[in-house]
Amino acid sequence: MSTPATPPTSRRQQFIQTYRMAKKTDRTIGLWIFGAFILGALMGFAFIWFLPGDGLIAWIMSGVGAFLVGLLLAVTVFGRRAQKAAYGQMEGQVGAAASALTMLRRGWKTDPVVGFNRQQDVVHRVVGPPGIVLVGEGNPTRLRQLMANERRKHERVLPETPIHEVVCGNGEGEVPLPKLVKHVTKLGKNLKPADITDVRNRLKAIDAQRGTVPLPKGPVPTSMKGMRGQQRGR
């Protein structure tokens, strides 16, 4: 007997879940959202009011403009505050980098935990316009060997594809979690969409030999994809 499919989360439910998550560490997020709406509403009302026109139409248009601008500013502030809260909650958890990388837009493919060791140092893989990006999180000394091994495996299959190495952390030469996505997207554009598809297909040879990689013990943060939609105001 097949298990019934889980219904998709609605935009309203997604908003509520994200707000509750952010509220755990950002107690003032409600005030920020309310203040942003009021400020945006005042700006929208004033802008429309001083446009040519008078009478009832002017009042209606100003009211609509106030609501729309207020809503846009409130959603923008909510997205940024919620994202900041999520990064704060994920900091130091195993798999935090993989969760943050779900914020990458279409055209990127993230494969969590393509390499790991007993000490729970892990390496994630991202394929996108820069080429292959190996993202490590854990002890920098142990990661050096772990990432070198993963680089060699990928170079054997894709010797001409650029491979970048990034260590997520707060130490010297590392990329902090909140800046990880931005850092990865700025690594350049070395591959076209067709090249990315070819690379992903050829990587299946490595993944087939690797087999099933067990996730390290400990909490793995929730995906931030829902937050990406909130941040865009959709």
Rank of each mutant, 00 (worst) to 15 (best):
M1D: 13
T3R: 15
A5P: 10
T6F: 08
P8I: 09
R11I: 08
Q13M: 10
F15T: 05
T18A: 02
Y19D: 05
R20Q: 13
M21P: 02
M21A: 14
K24Y: 09
K24P: 03
R27H: 15
I29H: 04
I29D: 07
G30V: 02
W32H: 10
I33H: 01
L39Q: 00
L39R: 00
G40Y: 02
L42K: 07
G44D: 01
F45L: 11
F45R: 13
A46E: 00
F47R: 09
F50G: 07
F50N: 14
D54V: 11
L56N: 10
G63T: 04
G65Q: 02
F67A: 15
L71R: 14
G79M: 04
R80S: 11
R80Q: 15
R81M: 06
K84S: 15
G88W: 01
G92P: 01
V94L: 10
G95C: 08
G95Q: 07
G95L: 07
A96L: 09
S99E: 02
A100Q: 02
L104V: 07
R105Y: 08
R106N: 12
W108P: 00
K109G: 07
V113S: 09
N117S: 06
H124R: 01
V126D: 05
G128I: 03
G131I: 00
G136S: 03
G138T: 04
P140C: 06
R142P: 03
L143D: 01
M147C: 09
A148L: 13
R151H: 11
H154N: 12
E155P: 05
E155N: 09
R156I: 03
R156D: 04
V157R: 04
P159Q: 08
P159F: 06
E160N: 15
T161G: 07
I163Y: 01
C168N: 01
V184H: 02
V184G: 02
L191D: 03
K192H: 12
K192W: 13
D195W: 08
I196V: 13
T197K: 15
N201C: 08
L203G: 05
A205D: 13
I206Y: 06
D207F: 13
P214D: 14
K217H: 15
K217Y: 15
G218W: 08
K225N: 09
K225F: 06
Q230K: 07
Q230N: 13
Q231I: 10
